[in-house]
Each structure stands twice: as structure tokens, then as C-alpha cells.
Simulated assay, not measured.
Amino acid sequence: MKDNIYHLIEKYLAGTITPAEEAQLMAWYQDHNQTDVEWPSENADEEEQVRLRMLLRMNQQINTPVTRSGTTRRLWYLSAAASVLLIVGFATYFYYTQIHRSTRPAVIARDVKDIGPGGNKAILTLANGDKVVLEEAKNGLISQQGNTSVNKTGSGSLLYNKEAGSTAASIVYNTLSTPYGGQYQMTLQDGTKVWLNAGSSLRFPASFPGNERNVILTGEAYFEVAKDNARPFFVTVNAGSGAPMTVRVLGTHFNINAYPDEQHNIVTLLEGAVKVGCGQANALLAPGKEAILNRTSGKINIKDGDTEGAVAWKNGYFLFENEKIESIMRQISRWYDVEVSYQGDVSGKAIGGSLSRSKNVSEVLNMLELTGTVHFKINGRRITVMP
């Protein structure tokens, strides 16, 4: 079997593989999608070269213009195979480049200070305007907000607790803000858990004494809303020039991506049910669906959602599925707190794959360069993207 697969790989790289043989090779990749691939070679260096060469060739085929007739399935097939290579090959790529860095040219000049990934960073603005830099705050009680205590836990998250036996108090609002290069997790007074992505903010009451639970989001957050049939939970989001977008839930898990620099607000439902509204437009989501709000027109479109991709940031990685390079770089800009500029035309270029958010930016850019789609240059905290 190994000899046959190796023979197919060589034919694929040489461009002499038949359609039937190519289907066999792609099926072999799909069969190994969930486990480490046993490469048909005993030499680690040779295995890595095979990975990289196949990745680049697949990328060339994926991005080759073709007619629509009879090609949709083939393009999807190649894209899936290339994504497998991106996922299973990059770990070995790093091992290889760390050992052989002197023989392999680096994408990023080594005299430029590398930029590390983001981390748990946020600022909590209290009702009186005081600001608490949470990564510098000690664990334990941070503040008393009305009848609610605000605590920083040992795991580096915020916890709001209503004091036992306390009477109703006037509503006071706090705001949790993450900078570029930051993310944070908190538990609201009602037990709802919220994860904030980089460059985001959540305004919320320290406690929820009324018949509704209302918060205001800018940017991106993942919610696990505590169930309370008597008190619906509302998330209000800016929707551009029109009316704000509202998401109404009772108890459910969902992600909202509503960055001001994106063309769309996207609500992806993982569990339960949510109602999304904006002006006269309304939509009810079922699990696995997502609502896409056009920030210009105010129209809402419902489609099958990519639930794994929607929460990839929360789980520590980027997940791109034929995603435009401009969208990818906006995500990188937020997480690494870098400025992005473009030199030359990269519009229409797309990349698929999974990348860890724990890597330095140079490593991430090296991986993206391996697709042969784009190239990068770093100068301080500015990344220039080139064809």
C-alpha cells in the first residue's frame, strides 16, 4: 500500500496522474483526516518535502480558473485535501524548520523582533468610571457594584455574584473591554458565561433585577446563556447606519461576530434557539444555522452555519475555509495587535486551513506563505501583504 501511495504522490507532483489515480490519492487523504498521516517514506526530511510540494500543487489547482460544469465537486475535493495538508503538515513543518532553519530561508527577516500572540487582557470599567486593568489585578474581590461582588478567579476570569440576602438595588452598569491582542472570559450575575474576542466590549448591568436581561456588544463574543424562562436575555449590537441588531434568547449557546469593520454581523447558533431582529427584518434560528445581517441593507440571510469555525477563536485556533486574505488579515490584526497594509493586488485570493492562535505571528505568516497565495513583510508592528 505504501509503495502504491508513494507512486501516486510522485505522479501527482509530476502532473501525470490519471483521474482515477487522483481520486484514489484524495480518498487516502480523506481516510486519514482524523489521525496522523503515516507518510510512505522513512526519511523525515523527504516526508516534509512531499507535504509541502503537494500542498503547493493542490493550492495551484484550487486557484486555477475553471468552468462551472462538472467542476464544483472536484474543487471542493481538492480544497478538502489541501486543508488536511494544512492541518496535519504544519506541525511537522515547524519541527523541520526549527532544526534546519539555516538551510531553509525564513519568510520573516530574523533581525525583526517577532510578535507574540494575544492573551488574557481586558479592562473593566466600573459604574463610577474607574478602570481596572485585569491582567494586573490580583485574584479575589475587585469591587462591590451595588449588591453584587466582582471577583477575579484563579483561572483569570471575572465572576459576578449577588450577595446573599441583599435587597434590590439600583441598576449600575459595567463595561468589559478587550484590546487588540486580548481576550477574556466572564460570568454574569445570572450565571451566563461570556467569552470576549480581541477588540471587543460588553456593557452589562452588575445584576439583573428586572424582567429582562440586557447587554450591549461591540465586536465578537460567545455566549452560554443561563436559562430563565421568566427573563429573556437580549444582546444589542450596532448594525451600521441602520437600526441596531437584537438577539433574543432564553437559554442557549451562540456566537456573535459584529466587528464594525466587517460588512456583515453574523450570529451562529450552536444550541437552543434565538431570534435575530433588525428593524423590520426578523429571523428565528435553529441549531447549526447562522443569521447574516448585511450592515448596509439591513437584510438578514439564513444559511447553514460553520459552528466549528465560528467558535475556533474561543478554542485557540484560526479556521479558514476558502477565506479571503483580507478577512484573514483582519483576524490576525486583532489578535496580534498589528497594522496591516497591502502592496499589490491580493483581492480574490483565498486560503483554507487551521492555524494555532498560540504561535508567534511570523510562524503564522510562514504557514500562510506555504500556500503560494501571498507573501508578507514585517516592519515593527506593520505587516505588508504582497502577491
Results as ranks from 00 to 15, higher is better:
Q145T: 07
N161M: 13
N315S: 04
K162L: 06
D114K: 11
Y180Q: 15
A350K: 15
H100E: 03
V267R: 01
K289D: 14
D345A: 01
W195V: 03
I62K: 00
N33D: 05
P244R: 10
R53D: 12
Q183I: 08
A239S: 14
L202V: 10
P65H: 07
A20D: 09
G156F: 14
Y77E: 09
D31H: 06
Y12L: 10
N33H: 10
S347Y: 10
L365C: 03
Y29Q: 05
G210N: 15
K275S: 04
K349V: 07
W335Q: 12
L270K: 08
A20Q: 15
S69V: 12
Y96S: 08
A169Q: 11
R295P: 04
V340F: 07
K349H: 08
I378R: 06
E363Q: 13
L52E: 13
N322Q: 14
S354M: 15
K2G: 14
I171G: 00
G242M: 04
G156V: 15
E163M: 13
D114N: 09
G182Y: 07
T192P: 05
T175P: 13
M386V: 12
G277P: 02
P260M: 12
N33T: 13
G70T: 11
D190F: 01
E10G: 04
L159E: 12
I266V: 14
Q30N: 14
E21T: 08
L217V: 11
S79C: 06
L85A: 02
N128L: 01
E47T: 13
K131I: 02
I300W: 01
A206Q: 00
Y77C: 09
T18L: 13
W313G: 03
N238G: 11
G181I: 07
G298C: 05
W335V: 12
D306Q: 11
Y29P: 05
G288D: 11
K162F: 01
R73V: 13
F94P: 01
E262N: 15
N197W: 11
M1H: 02
N33E: 10
A82L: 03
V249G: 00
N229E: 13
M386F: 04
N211G: 08
P19N: 10
G140M: 02
Q30D: 10
F318K: 03
A44T: 10
V194E: 00
T35N: 12
